[in-house]
Amino acid sequence: MKHAGIVKKSDFITWLASREAVITSERLIRRHKELVSSVSAMEVRNVKETVFPGFGTLFSYRWEDRRWIIEDIPVTAKKCTVLVHPCEATALNEVLDRVFMNGEHPERDYEKLRSSLELVTIACEEPESTCFCRMVGGDPFRRVPDTLFVVPLEDRLYVECEEPNVWELWKKCVKVPSEVEKEIAEKEKKSREALPDPPLSEEVPEQLYRLFEDEEWDNIAWKCLNCGACTYLCPTCYCFDIHADGRLKGYQLRSWDACMFPRFTLHASGHNPRPGYRERVRQRVLHKFSYFPMREEGRFGCVGCGACVEVCPVNWDIREAVQRMVKKSGAGYARSS
């Protein structure tokens, strides 16, 4: 059930200030400074840092009295309110959660950090030149499940959620006047139209898979530097590496890793199944646009936030790559939307 309401901006800010901790993403601050400027919000470059940080300790170990002593280091998680855009909320809700919390063996630390978050999704009125959420099933006004959906208006906010009881803010909300409803619908339409890339069709994952051996990958991949900028700043990339730091005493660390690095797939024998830029770039594209959706009921592993496009030192644009391959595969775009 959808519940909608209107709340004064000042009430929203007061509510935020009353939260234990507030986190926002860099792109949100760029666009909605006014919402968080008076709250001491922590800024993250990439929303996945809140649940899957760049590095962390798993346990400590030391050699003592001729035996190893291992001590668990559980994470401490504070309750946090996270203000993000729909793509970022989707990344947590529909990609990372599926990876780390699905099934019988949820990842302990992830689960703990994740369950301490409450997500507030701020709709995007002005998509940037790097945005392409629509292409991968998103929308600048997407109501991401289990989040509070917010559209900032002049001095009020339009708020929408499924479960009003869990949001304290709801007490301050009043009924939505019909002219506001219209305004929202217009904004929604306008914003959607600002995103030129239409949604990819359902066949894309399977069709791309067939192009595994295609030689076009060579041309697509050539300019890529094989660095970690795109994957490290991608909100859905979840690969990590585990390593011990210290010989007789130290920590077991976990840190981000990336399929773009040659060492990522290097075997102990010296053999590397992904020896060149071609294989590595193909992996990144296919993982997000083929393997992941084939396994996860069509959910693309990319949320279209454009972070990778923004940071790439050689302007390697994943939209171009995908569109080129999709065209080649003949899969095309979904008709509806």
Partner: peptide
């Protein structure tokens, strides 16, 4: 001195 912290929200 190495300082580790797993939680960015420390």
């Amino acid at each position: 001195i190495k300082e580790f912290s797993f939680d960015v929200r420390r």
